[in-house]
């Protein structure tokens, strides 16, 4: 188990290096001279040269990369060109709202998605199955900006129950979390259903029934754990996407999160922030995948003991 964990952890290092190289190269590939951009439109050639030296942009690329890596590891990510604040502060302020929203959306979509998936998988063809699959397909196909606007119109404008946007109290989570989690829940439900249907045909499920076990035990103890293995992968990917900040939903509900920060930074050409967000999202994905690999080992003894 420890060996498996170390192997997986070791496997993330080259991925993170590749990502950092990409984020580093991304900025260098953009047209225009960052030194000139920072020095401003009225700067003289000497001023630009001074900025270039101050930022170390006159050094060879590899030295720049080493310096960039050194500062990244120390979490000093530079200053935002737009607000003048350190990038870390900027991202830190916006991280928690996105994280909280993602967790709420993820939790409800997992519970509902997996639950509906198992129910439909067990009772294939009955009304629960048919009904939940209709809901699931709608959930995937309904555009989230439109659903968001409809919800605001109904719940905030007409009924006045919930705030239209912002991050204030638990009430402000209801609509964004619902809108954000709906497609995730729908995908989970469909995926869980097919995984469950497959597992239900396995010989060991028949063996479990042949022991005279009640259906409840057959489903949750014997079938569910095996069906969970592919579902875990999907859940991990979904969570990674959610943490990246849903640009559309954060915009519709004026949510002060990373998705909106990204949109704002792109329109201001705020490279240090964009660069840092790329790095953050990639790192999150890598960490979640690591977590999923560990969960695999918990669920599947064949991985744990090899």
């Amino acid at each position: 188990m420890l060996g498996y964990f170390l192997r997986r952890l070791g496997g993330t290092i080259p991925v993170l290096l590749a990502v950092s190289l990409f984020a580093f190269g991304f900025v260098r590939l953009l047209p225009g001279d960052p030194a000139r951009l920072i020095a401003g439109p009225d700067a003289t050639l000497q001023d630009v040269q001074a900025v270039r030296e101050r930022l170390g942009l006159d050094q060879p690329l590899w030295q720049q990369y080493v310096r960039y890596m050194a500062s990244t590891v120390r979490l000093s990510l530079g200053t935002s060109a737009r607000s003048g604040q350190p990038v870390l502060t900027e991202i830190g302020e916006r991280f928690m709202p996105t994280f909280n929203l993602s967790v709420v959306a993820m939790v409800w979509s997992c519970i509902v998605g997996v639950g509906l998936g198992v129910l439909s998988g067990v009772k294939r063809g009955n009304w629960i199955d048919q009904g939940s699959m209709v809901v699931a397909v709608s959930g995937i196909s309904f555009p989230s900006f439109w659903l968001g606007l409809l919800l605001i119109d109904l719940c905030s404008v007409r009924l006045g129950w919930l705030p239209t946007g912002g991050d204030h109290d638990w009430k402000s989570y209801v609509m964004p979390a619902f809108t954000l989690g709906l497609p995730a829940a729908a995908v989970m439900a469909r995926f869980t259903r097919s995984a469950f249907v497959e597992v239900a045909q396995e010989d060991y499920v028949r063996t479990a029934r042949s022991k005279g076990l009640p259906e409840r035990v057959v489903i949750w103890r014997h079938a569910f754990r095996n069906a969970l293995i592919p579902v875990l992968t999907l859940a991990g990917l979904q969570f990674g996407f959610l943490l990246g900040g849903a640009i559309v939903i954060e915009t519709v509900f004026s949510w002060p999160g990373l998705g909106r920060l990204l949109v704002e930074s792109v329109s201001y050409r705020d490279y240090p922030v964009i660069q840092a967000e790329i790095l953050l999202f990639s790192t999150e994905f890598v960490l979640i995948n690591l977590l999923i690999d560990l969960l695999y080992a918990v669920v599947n003894p064949e991985i744990r003991l090899r």
Binding site: T207, N300, P301
Partner: peptide
Amino acid sequence: PEFSMVFQEPMSSLNPVL
């Protein structure tokens, strides 16, 4: 208690995670 079964495939007839 009254009857029980043994199946053909011992590979797939036992639950792999228990």
